[in-house]
């Protein structure tokens, strides 16, 4: 443990650690919101690679776990605000499911800040940029995640 903390500290101090993030964005709101961030030329860190899915409701827990297992330092799922889902209620199912994934991950010792859900509408380009910027900022001090269940 101590060693791992040391490694993380070093990474943190030298400012080299760039967290790898997978962002699952729903097509109608969050992906459109990220498009708006682009159109508005907002600047945010390049750490998050987006995967556009039809709806946050289509994000299976296994996607999230798999992203961590493939070495993601953080995973984001973003959908339409409650009540605004293009598919009426997909995001409500997502919210419940993701809540559970999050609690499970925290239980096995994954820092709460590594996994996030956000509501970003098509009009919220600024919010999208902020969500990514905040996520990167919060992930940096945590250092690399390593794979699930692996020693750090």
């Amino acid at each position: 443990m101590a060693e791992a903390v040391e490694v993380r500290k070093v990474a943190q101090e030298s400012g080299e650690f760039e967290p790898k993030i997978v962002a699952f964005l729903c097509k109608w709101c969050s992906s459109a919101g990220s498009d708006l961030a682009g159109v508005s030329r907002l600047q945010y860190p390049s750490n998050a690679v987006p995967i556009t899915v039809p709806c946050s409701g289509s994000v299976s827990p296994i996607y999230i776990l798999s992203a961590f297992n493939k070495g993601a330092d953080g995973v984001l799922v973003s959908g339409c605000h409650p009540g605004d889902c293009h598919y009426l209620k997909g995001n409500f199912f997502a919210r419940r499911r993701i809540y559970l994934v999050q609690k499970l991950l925290q239980f096995i010792g994954v820092e709460p800040n590594r996994f996030r859900m956000s509501w970003v509408s098509a009009a919220e380009g600024t919010k999208y940029a902020q969500v990514i910027a905040d996520f990167v900022k919060d992930l940096k001090p945590l250092g690399p995640h390593g794979k699930l269940g692996a020693k750090r």
């Binding site: 827990p61 776990l65 798999s66 096995i108 390593g146 794979k147 699930l148 269940g149």
Partner: peptide
């Protein structure tokens, strides 16, 4: 592998 086992147990729990 520990990470694969973790993945297995978490998927099963979900």
């Amino acid at each position: 592998d520990a990470s694969e086992s973790a993945m297995y147990h978490l998927v099963r729990a979900m």
